[in-house]
């Protein structure tokens, strides 16, 4: 394999995954069940930050480009929703916070485009999808987040931006590592904070890809069609965790595979 590809594979998968797995190992040592989601969230955040640093590595404040907000959005979500995991917000407060964070995250990412006009429709749609994604996957430990993140990495890299595809690949690697620890039953669950961090990264990358790299629309929307698989999996799994996850994964894989195939076919039609 070419040295450049090896380097990209290390930055995108190997080192973030290693950091996540190392951090997750601490979760096994903890006896306090309430702290496990915090460790899980830290592992997710650490793994992503390792990949982010190796691939992009800009931590300036305010960030010069939208992807520079990722570490700050992650940190904010970690702080706020870790408190939720420890103390427990009411459902209403959690929904309000998720809505506020979805709107403010969308505004921050689209802010540079405000110079040329107010992208009202784009802002409304992105905040709504961000919020919907979060509500649907909040506190869930199944394979859906991992599959959508992996699909987004493929769709971004092939139809939008290699950089965003790599960052998406980092998220997929981190969530893949997390999934390995939580199959068939959740041992070190993501909790509210973990899903807040993962959904924020995923939604941000999808929005940046669409707004700045013109990532293909149809495959991106197809990825979101994987979300209902969670409800079907829960219904058909009949409270058997392993069966529930397998059904979720199998159902979610269908739209993700179709989206990836469309994106790869489009890429191969004009390969370098």
């Amino acid at each position: 394999m070419a040295p450049m590809l090896l380097s990209m594979a290390g930055e995108t998968v190997l080192w973030p995954l290693a950091a996540t797995v190392a951090a997750m190992m601490f979760g096994f040592l903890l006896r306090d069940a309430r702290s496990k989601p915090i460790v899980s969230t830290l592992a997710t955040g650490t793994g992503f930050l390792v990949g982010y640093t190796l691939i992009y590595g800009i931590f300036a404040f305010p960030p010069p480009e939208p992807q520079g907000w990722l570490p700050y959005l992650m940190a904010l979500n970690f702080l706020v929703f870790s408190f939720d995991d420890l103390a427990g917000f009411s459902h209403r407060i959690r929904i309000v916070l998720q809505g506020a964070f979805s709107i403010s995250g969308s505004v921050l990412i689209l802010l540079p485009l405000f110079k040329t006009g107010f992208p009202a429709l784009q802002l409304a749609v992105s905040a709504l999808l961000w919020f919907g994604l979060w509500i649907a996957l909040d506190g869930r430990n199944g394979p859906i987040l991992f599959l959508v993140a992996a699909g987004n990495a493929i769709v971004s890299a092939t139809t939008g931006s290699t950089l965003l595809g790599q960052l998406g690949g980092v998220l997929a690697a981190v969530l893949g590592g997390h999934l390995a620890f939580n199959f068939p039953k959740p041992r070190i669950p993501l909790g509210h904070a973990g899903t807040a961090v993962a959904v924020t990264i995923l939604a941000s990358l999808m929005l940046i890809g669409r707004a700045y790299a013109e990532t293909a629309l149809i495959p991106s929307l197809l990825l979101l069609c994987a979300i209902p698989a969670d409800f079907l999996g829960r219904y058909l799994g009949r409270n058997r965790k392993s069966l529930e996850m397998i059904i979720c994964g199998a159902l979610a894989l269908i739209p993700v595979a179709i989206a990836s195939a469309i994106a790869i076919k489009s890429y191969l039609s004009q390969e370098y």
Partner: peptide, 21 residues
């Protein structure tokens, strides 16, 4: 002289033309 490369260069990987036109 190649559309896909133009798109890559104009995106967030390099010039980020939407933000810095």
């Amino acid at each position: 002289n190649f559309d896909k490369r133009n798109k890559d260069l104009l995106g967030p990987d390099f010039f980020n033309a939407k933000q810095f036109p």
